[in-house]
């Protein structure tokens, strides 16, 4: 599904701020994997996700997605394979545009955009049905600017947008870190539901070890730009926070 082969990335090379973010990172995700990614600050978790998303050019190595080499593909082109939810709730939506306009933009991810009206009446009905199960009342506020929504509402909306057109890979970058615990739980639960419903291959970066253990079928711990621990299936189910902390200390 996703294959990262010897991917390297150094930020600010040759300066005092030089930072090796990815150090010959190799990683292979199977179809349907839901991987939670943990690690300390600067371990390379977000950099890993951003390398896949194409936020920057990697220094060396290869990234394959579904057999396609996307290493040198511009971010907006590979966007057609990817759904993304960011840590910052402001990042995933256009605040001055309506809820339905944001959804309509997401519905056209990877499609050619033309001079057709941006949203149809049929889509509107579809979006209402999509938003209703969230229980946030967004289905009745389609023509509200997204900037007026709370952080949690925005993350929920971004999640819906990221999966509106089924992505090959869903990237969740600490997407609940900026939310209060209650809202975070709601958004996490929603993420679980969406991932299962569409059987999405998913990478979720998190700082919360409990969340990392409770979600997904596989757990990766990163350290200094490489994979330090990779457990899956039954083995992962037996893992405890204490176990993780022990590995973390090494």
């Amino acid at each position: 599904m996703l294959e990262m082969i010897d991917v390297c990335k150094t930020f600010n090379p040759g300066t005092v701020n030089e930072k090796v973010a990815l150090d010959r990172l190799s990683l292979r995700l199977e179809e349907g994997d839901f991987v939670t990614v943990i690690g300390g600050n600067g371990a390379g978790k977000s950099t890993c996700l951003n390398a896949v998303a194409g936020s920057f050019a990697v220094d060396s190595g290869k990234i394959l997605l579904g057999g396609v080499d996307i290493t040198h593909m511009p971010a907006h082109v590979r966007a057609k394979y990817l759904g993304r939810v960011f840590q910052d709730p402001m990042m995933g939506t256009a605040p001055d545009m309506w809820i339905e306009e944001n959804l309509a933009l997401a519905a056209r991810r990877g499609k050619k955009r033309g001079l057709k009206w941006s949203i149809s009446e049929r889509e509107r009905a579809e979006y209402r049905e999509l938003l209703a199960p969230l229980g946030l009342g967004l289905e009745n506020r389609l023509q509200t600017k997204v900037g007026l929504l709370s952080g949690g509402q925005r993350q929920a909306l971004t999640l819906v947008m990221a999966t509106l057109k089924k992505p090959q890979l869903l990237l969740l970058d600490e997407h609940t870190a900026a939310l209060d615990p209650k809202t975070a739980a709601v958004v996490l639960e929603l993420s679980d539901r969406v991932v299962q419903e569409h059987s999405l291959t998913t990478m979720m970066v998190t700082h919360n070890m409990r969340d990392a253990l409770a979600h997904g079928n596989r757990l990766i711990m990163m350290d200094e730009g490489r994979v330090k621990l990779d457990v899956r299936g039954e083995e992962k189910k037996k893992l405890t926070v204490r176990d993780l902390l022990e590995v973390f200390e090494i």
Binding site: A53, A75, H76, V77, A79, K80, L82, R84, F86, M90, M91, G92, T93, A94, P95, L105, A106, R108, R109, G110, K111, M161
Partner: peptide, 9 residues
């Protein structure tokens, strides 16, 4: 929002 726009292709 440029980041969002690019993420939406």
């Amino acid at each position: 929002n440029r980041v969002m726009a690019r993420a939406q292709g």
